[in-house]
Design a binder for these strands. Structure first.
Length: 312
DNA sequence: CTATTCACCTGGGTGC
DNA sequence: TGCACCCAGGTGAATA
C-alpha cells in the first residue's frame, strides 16, 4: 500500500492496535522478507522477542515500530510495504493469507500483527535509530507526544535505512524553501523530482499525477524552467491532495490496499488524473491522456497541462 | 559525481 | 479454457 496517505493509514492502525504491547514471538517465513536485515530472519525474530512497542512512526513511505528491547537501546523495526505489502491485525486463528510472510505475537494473547505481501517488494528490518539528520529547531510548544503523526517530530530518531529519505510534506521537518531551491536547480523533469524520495518523500505515481494536474503543470517540464512560486504551489498541491486522501482513508482500487483491519479507503473516487485515461478533465473537459514516463504511466490533461516541446 | 534504466515479484485483465 | 502479453500505489543496484 504505497504512498504517504495509505502508509499513514496503516501507521495509525498500528498506533492504535500495537503500540504499548510486548512482543513474545516473531515468525518470518523465507529469506526474502528480511533480506534488508543484516542478520537475516532468524536474527530478526530472536531480537524482537520481549520488546515493548513504544511507538509507530513514519517518514514518507517508510514505517517503523520503535522497540524497547530489555538490554539494549531502542531499535526500529522498519516495515516497507513496497508495491503490495499489507499489515493486518488479526486473531492468531484467522485463516493464513496466501502471501503471509511474517507474524508478531504479543504477550496479552490479543490479535497478532501480520505482514502480507503478494509481490514481495516490501520487507522488514531491525535497525538502530539515529538522530534525525533533518531535525529542525522547532518553534513554540514542547509537545513531544509520540506516535510520530504529522507535525510531531521523530522523538526517537530515524532508522538507519531511512536516513537518506527526505522529510515528507506533512511533517514539521519539511523544509519547503530548501526543496524549492533543490528542484529549481535541476534541469530534470519535474515529475521525476516529485518521485525522488531524497528530495521530498511520500509522493508516488498517483499523487504526483494528481498534484501536477491540480497545478496545471506537465510532469515532463524541466523543474529549472518553472518559477520558484510555481514549484511552491506544486508542492502545496501535493501536500493538500495527500491530506485529502488521508481523510478518506487513502486510495484503493482493490483489496490489495487496506488498513490494518482490512478495509479500503475511497479516495479513488476523487482522482482527477491518475487512471482517468479517456475521461473528461474536470476543469476543461478535454480527454485525459496517458503516456509512458520512467517505465510507468503518467496521466494528464493535454489542455490544462501543456506539454513542453523539448523532452526533459 | 549525476542521471537513467532495470531487476526484483505475483496476479488480474484483455485479446486472440 | 488456454495462453501470451500488458499492466500495477516502489526501490535501489547497476549502468551510462
Amino acid at each position: 500500500m504505497p504512498e504517504l496517505p495509505e502508509v499513514e493509514v496503516v501507521r495509525r492502525g498500528l498506533a492504535q492496535h500495537v503500540v504499548g504491547r510486548r512482543v513474545v514471538a516473531a515468525d518470518l517465513s523465507g529469506q526474502r522478507v528480511a533480506r534488508r536485515h543484516d542478520g537475516g530472519p532468524v536474527d530478526l525474530a530472536t531480537r524482537v522477542r520481549q520488546s515493548e512497542v513504544l511507538a509507530a512512526d513514519r517518514r514518507g513511505k517508510y514505517l517503523w515500530l520503535v522497540l524497547d528491547a530489555p538490554d539494549d537501546d531502542p531499535h526500529a523495526l522498519v516495515m516497507h510495504l513496497g508495491m503490495s505489502g499489507q499489515l493486518l491485525v488479526e486473531p492468531a486463528d484467522a485463516p493464513r493469507e496466501k502471501h503471509l510472510h511474517a507474524t508478531l505475537d504479543f504477550d496479552d494473547d490479543g490479535p497478532q500483527l501480520r505482514f502480507v505481501d503478494q509481490r514481495t517488494f516490501g520487507g522488514l528490518a531491525l535497525t538502530p535509530l539515529l538522530p534525525d539528520p533533518h531535525q529542525r529547531a522547532h518553534h513554540g510548544d514542547a509537545d513531544h507526544g509520540h506516535g510520530g503523526g504529522p507535525g510531531r517530530g521523530h522523538v526517537h530518531g530515524i532508522p538507519e535505512p531511512v536516513a537518506h529519505i527526505a522529510p515528507d510534506p506533512l511533517e514539521d521537518a519539511f523544509d519547503r524553501p530548501r526543496v524549492i531551491r533543490t528542484m529549481k536547480s535541476k534541469n530534470v523533469a519535474v515529475k521525476r523530482l516529485l518521485l525522488d524520495q531524497g528530495v521530498v518523500s511520500g509522493i508516488g505515481n498517483i499523487y504526483a499525477d494528481e498534484a501536477l494536474w491540480r497545478a496545471g503543470v506537465h510532469g515532463r517540464r524541466p523543474a529549472s524552467a518553472l518559477t520558484r512560486p510555481a514549484i511552491g504551489r506544486l508542492l502545496d498541491h501535493a501536500a493538500e491532495v495527500m491530506r485529502e486522501a488521508l481523510a478518506q482513508g487513502g486510495t484503493s482500487f482493490d483489496a490489495l490496499y487496506v488498513n490494518v483491519n482490512g478495509a479500503s479507503g475511497y479516495f479513488d473516487r476523487s482522482l482527477d488524473a491518475y487512471g482517468q485515461t479517456g475521461r473528461p478533465c474536470a476543469r476543461c473537459g478535454s480527454a485525459i491522456r496517458r503516456e509512458e514516463f520512467m517505465n510507468r504511466s503518467s496521466h494528464f490533461c493535454p489542455r490544462c497541462q501543456t506539454v513542453p516541446r523539448v523532452r526533459a
